Computed example of a mutant assay.
Amino acid sequence: MKTIYEVQQLLKRFGTFIYTGDRIGDLELMEEELRELNGYGIIDQKEYTAALMVIRGELRKERQK
C-alpha cells in the first residue's frame, strides 16, 4: 500500500467513505477508522501498519504546506 487512494479503497471495503472537504481532517478520520478496524481485529496488522504509514506521510506533507 503506497497511496491514499489505496487506503481509501481499503476503507471502502468495510463501508467507510470519508470526505469532509478538509484534507487534514479527512486523513485524521481515516487514521481513526483504521484504528477501530484494527482494534476489532477486522484487518490484519500488516494492512493496518502499511495504511497508517501512508496516512502519516500524507499528514506530514499537508502540515508542512
Rank of each mutant, 00 (worst) to 15 (best):
M1C: 08
M1V: 01
K2W: 01
T3H: 06
T3K: 12
I4L: 15
Y5P: 00
Y5L: 08
Y5V: 01
E6R: 02
E6L: 06
V7P: 00
Q8Y: 08
Q8N: 06
Q9G: 05
L10R: 04
L10G: 05
L10N: 04
L11C: 09
L11G: 04
L11T: 00
L11W: 05
K12L: 03
K12P: 00
K12Q: 14
R13P: 00
R13E: 11
R13H: 09
F14E: 12
F17L: 10
F17I: 10
F17C: 00
Y19W: 13
T20N: 03
T20I: 07
T20M: 14
G21R: 08
G21Q: 06
G21Y: 07
D22T: 01
R23F: 09
D26Y: 04
L27R: 08
L27Y: 10
L27G: 01
L27F: 10
E28A: 10
E28K: 12
E28S: 11
L29A: 13
L29H: 13
M30L: 08
E32N: 10
E32V: 07
E33L: 05
R35H: 13
R35S: 05
L37A: 05
N38M: 04
G39K: 08
G39H: 13
Y40K: 15
Y40A: 12
Y40D: 12
G41P: 04
I42F: 13
I42G: 08
I43H: 08
I43M: 08
I43Q: 09
D44R: 05
K46D: 07
K46T: 09
A50S: 15
A51T: 03
L52Y: 08
L52D: 06
M53D: 15
M53L: 14
M53Y: 07
V54H: 01
V54E: 08
V54S: 07
I55Q: 03
R56D: 14
G57T: 14
E58M: 08
E58L: 03
L59D: 03
L59Q: 12
R60V: 07
K61M: 15
K61G: 05
E62Q: 15
Q64R: 14
Q64I: 12
Q64S: 14
K65R: 15
